[in-house]
């Protein structure tokens, strides 16, 4: 177990080094969500959404975008490319266990996400004067989100025959994340059943926990009224439950679909 942790940390550091050396990844994964955030905030204008200024609403939803780019797309790409180039096979034939290899990638993605969120936090403070109200809640949301989307990425990489195809296989998930999650607009904009479905998607609970954690107000329902710290945690419980279920589901999917070696024939 201790070995696994050491291995995972070392592999996560490796991932960060390699991301830093790859301009395509730097742009797609790190810059793109920030660019989109800037566009969305511009589009929102000054109008209030769910009791908060539009800018603050959008910026606290942007971590949902980042989960899509820095975690999901990034990992589908890297799992697929490494499998096809036989890097995964080499790693698995070396010291790290399967668990450590996966955890390393997840940890690297978490570091990227947290780095981006730190930038976002500064941005929020500068433009909206918001300081995060509940940092532990934000961190928990980030960790749960990364686990689910890393496992989902592992599963999707199994469906992706090569690195070029990854651009296409990630699209369905990305579309659902962009349209179905309350990133730039609240859930109740969606007509009845769609709203319920959206609430069950793995990105919605993360965004709601993040938004509540940043703004200190109830963003699980459409209310937006202020909550105590304890109240925030209680309100977050259903979201945490949904994420726990998703961890189970995506874990099984990853187990079933993930491939360590290129398929033959």
């Amino acid at each position: 177990m201790k070995t696994d942790v050491l291995h995972a940390v070392r592999l996560a550091r490796l991932d960060l080094t390699l991301v830093a050396r790859n301009t395509t990844v730097l742009f797609n994964v790190l810059l793109l969500p920030l660019l989109m955030a800037w566009m969305f905030t511009g589009a929102q204008g000054g109008a209030e959404v769910a009791g908060v200024p539009g800018g603050a609403f959008v910026l606290t939803g942007v971590p949902g975008l980042m989960l899509g780019f820095a975690v999901f797309i990034n990992l589908v790409n890297s799992f697929t490319a490494r499998r096809e180039e036989l890097v995964l096979k080499r790693l698995r034939g070396g010291q790290p266990s399967a668990l450590a290899v996966m955890a390393g990638s997840g940890l690297g993605a978490l570091a990227l996400l947290l780095g981006q969120m730190a930038l976002l936090g500064i941005w929020l403070h500068r433009t909206e004067g918001v300081l995060p109200a509940n940092v532990p809640l934000i961190l928990l949301a980030a960790v749960l989100g990364v686990i689910v989307f890393a496992l989902l990425a592992a599963a999707f990489s199994g469906l992706t025959p090569n690195a070029e195809m990854a651009q296409i296989t990630v699209l369905p998930v990305l579309m659902v994340m962009l349209l179905g999650a309350p990133i730039a607009f609240p859930l109740d904009v969606l007509p009845g059943p769609l709203g319920t479905v959206s609430g069950l998607l793995p990105v919605t609970p993360v965004v709601e926990m993040m938004r509540t954690g940043f703004l200190g107000a109830d963003h699980f329902s459409s209310g937006g009224e202020a909550l105590s710290t304890a109240g925030q945690w209680v309100a977050a419980l259903p979201s945490i439950g949904i994420m726990a279920v998703w961890i189970g589901v995506t874990g099984l999917l990853a187990r079933w679909l993930f491939r360590w070696e290129p398929r033959h024939g």
Binding site: L14, T17, L18, R21, N22, R82, E85, L86, V87, L88, K89, R90, G93, G94, Q95, S97
Partner: peptide, 18 residues
């Protein structure tokens, strides 16, 4: 077993950017 074994695969990939 893993720490006690060395493996040279017929074909194994490297991380080209390292």
């Amino acid at each position: 077993l893993r720490p006690r074994v060395g493996i040279m695969l017929q074909e194994g990939g490297f991380l080209g950017d390292l």
